[in-house]
Amino acid sequence: MAKRIDVKDLDIYYGDFKAVEGVSLTVEPRSVTAFIGPSGCGKSTVLRTLNRMHEVIPGGRVDGTISLDDQDLYASSMDPVAVRRTVGMVFQRPNPFPTMSIRDNVAAGLKLNGVKNKKQLDEVVEKSLKGANLWNEVKDRLDKPGAGLSGGQQQRLCIARAIAVDPQVLLMDEPCSALDPISTLAIEDLINELKSKYTVVIVTHNMQQAARVSDQTAFFNLKATGQPGRLVEVDDTQKIFSNPTEQATEDYISGRFG
């Protein structure tokens, strides 16, 4: 189910602008990896290459290899649509489809896969909403618009939508940055549960959050302003927060810059 991600010598471009340079890292199955680092250092950019969402942006392209259990994601035979069905994504701002009910939001991905059977859809909707810890709050109003939920509920709805298609990896780009502390805790609890089934990669600005939820932490930084972002250090979260190898990491987590 969950898969291992291998990134090697990854350079990422927006047109002629090289945004990220020389990233290599490995993410183990059923673990949570946190990306931390100052704004603009390329965390979101790297994350979006993991499900080929980067190339959706005009001019977006990559150099290097990313593989999922030895399967090259950027092989020419690889269909980006298939990659995105395997590697789900949750965005910074909750983005439920505004015209759809809660049920239809969760079922959207399945319907794209051609599932029409109502009973099967209902089962997956219930299972996914339970998986996202949202079922009890919405089970009586599944036909109400998803946009009517609170921000935290919307974000969990988006997580339910992402896990409904049974992905192997779940990417989250600052999933709590638009949420209040209570909703944030709910999502963090959820991430802890999700890692028993999925490989999770999460971008976060919040270092306590990285320390709380992740097994491994990757610290990104800019070499200098105007230079591409790069991966400074990746290691066990425990190690990064107690005894990092690089001075820059130490400075960042102790709040001396960034």
Partner: peptide
């Protein structure tokens, strides 16, 4: 956000 939401679902 809506367009990417759909694309990210495959």
């Amino acid at each position: 956000a809506h367009k990417e939401g759909a694309l990210a679902l495959g």
